[in-house]
Every structure is written in structure tokens, then in C-alpha cells.
Amino acid sequence: MQKGWSIFFGVILLATFLIWFAAPFFGWWLPENISTFGGGVDNLFYAILGLTTFFFVLTEVVLVYAMWKFVDRGGEKSVYTHGNHTLELVWTAIPAALLLGIAIAQIGVWEKIKYQSRMPAPDLTVSVLARQWEWRMRYPLDNQQFHYEDEDQKAASNLKSRLWAENPNFDDVHAINELHVWKNANVKLWIRTLDVLHSFTLPNLRLKQDTLPGKTIPMWFNAEKSNCEFVVRERSTGKPVTLAFNSKTKLVEVVTPSGREPLEARVADLKGELETSGNKADNWEIACQELCGSRHYAMRGRLYVHADEKSYYAWLQYSRGAQKATSLEAAVSMR
């Protein structure tokens, strides 16, 4: 009868193992990677997963086998041992070597993602302010001010953008729970919190950073895939309007037969909308991964990667126009 226990545990462990194998087929796995450095994170993840799986299976097999084999054999006396030096050395040295291996293998990936000195010059800067229970994003109207070509200007630019993150500008565009960037842009984020610890997580980018009260923490990423485009239509007719984009001044203008007008000034009679594929897999999430209070579960947002710079700036300048609404017509321009 006592052998039943080894069967019981054996079956449970086997089931756990099989569920783990089945999980990806039910969608319980990492979401699609869209960042430039995500591949490195995934490789590390799989390497560590492979190692731990191997040792997990090994130890569990030995454990269950030992339960089966050495179950009470009636009247036999136990043998006491004071340990085996060689064995202990072996099982200490192997994990130590493996850990050291992992520690060395991860340096390159970590450095690329987290080292401030390795962060590229930003095409876009966003301030993210966490609070119970939402993410408040702030976008500068002018991203050029933080851009630099020369590495010498890096420190000065960094300080400037950090000061901006800590002190809002009059022109800033505010959005709640929505992170907008464009494809292939180097994005710099400054992460802060108003209250408690939160953890700003972008699963699709394999990126995660805790927010610490009192600290302004930089993050960066570059998304290689887009999931949306900003389309502007005539409010009355629903016809899409033609937009012109000046890549130098970053100004988006509405092209009409009579001439051009800044998009920002036309929100009252235009309707701008984010168009997405509608596929669930293209809903890229922002999540809080630090239990931060009773509504922690609801502290979610969306990552919108625009197809190109033009789409992003159209969204930005349209939002700016909506934020400057002075008429009833403009007040309904954006949800």
C-alpha cells in the first residue's frame, strides 16, 4: 500500500510536467516579441528554462524512484550516514559553475537594455507617472530638443530630458494608460511614481522596471513591429483626409484644395481614430507587476506602436489640439 504514495507523487509530477508542455498550445506563454533586444531576453529565458527543466526532472525522478525503492521493507534497520564529501562538492560545484555561466552569459543582454551609458539617442521621449492605479503618460510636443548626434552632448541632453520628465511643460500632451511610439524609433522613457512601488511592464517588449518613490528611472526600447495607424477623417462626411508630414519640423498638416493647415488647429471638424487590426494578439499590454493595492489587477494600459513617424505625430498633434479644446465641437474630438 505504501508504494501508493510514490505513484501518487509520481503522477502529480508527471501531470505538472505535461501541463507545462501543453501550455503554449493554450496561449499560456510569452506574447510575441516585438523589441530589438527581446530575442536576447528570450534566449536567456529558454536557456535557463532548459537547464532548470533538466535538473528538475532529474531530481524528481530520483526522488520518486527513491520513494518507490526504499519504502518500508519491514523490520530492516535504517543506515545512518555522515555525508559524502565528494558528492557534496560535486553538487555544489556544478550549480556554482552553471550560475557563473549564466551570470556571464547575461551581461551582454543586460548591458544593452539597462545600462544608461549604452542607451541610444532618443527619437522620442515619454514621461510615465505611475499612481494607484493608472499610468499617466506625458509626451513632449518637440522631441528634437532631446536628440543629439554627438556622444559629448549625451549627458547634457539626458539631464535636460530628465528635468522635463520631472517638470511638466505647458505644451505637453497628456494621455492615460496609453503609450504611443512608432516603429523602429528609439524610445526613451522616464519612469516615476506618485505613491507606492509599481512595476512598469511591457511583456511584448520583454521590458520591465520597478518604479521607486522619489526616483526618476530611465528605460529605452525600439519596437520592430507596429500595431496601429492614426487615421483622420472629416467629421461630417467620414472621408479620410490627406495629411502632409514635414520630417524636419515634425509638423502634420491637413491638405485641402485651398491650402494647408496645421492638424492641431482643425480638430473641431475632424475625427481622428486609431486603427488596429482588431486581432487579440495585436493588443499589446502594459501591466503593473508589483502588487500595489486593491486595484492592482486593473492597472493596465495599451502599447500603440504606430506604423511610422507621421502617424505618431498626427496622433500627437491631434491630441494636442483636443487638449486645447475651447469649443463644444472640439470638446468631442477625442475620447
Binding site: 494607484q132 493608472e134 492615460i176 486595484r295 495599451r302
Partner: peptide, 8 residues
């Protein structure tokens, strides 16, 4: 205030 946004 503690009222979060439910815009999503």
C-alpha cells in the same frame, strides 16, 4: 484624487 481613468 484616487479616482483612476477607465478609458480602456
Amino acid at each position: 484624487t484616487s479616482m483612476p481613468a477607465f478609458g480602456l
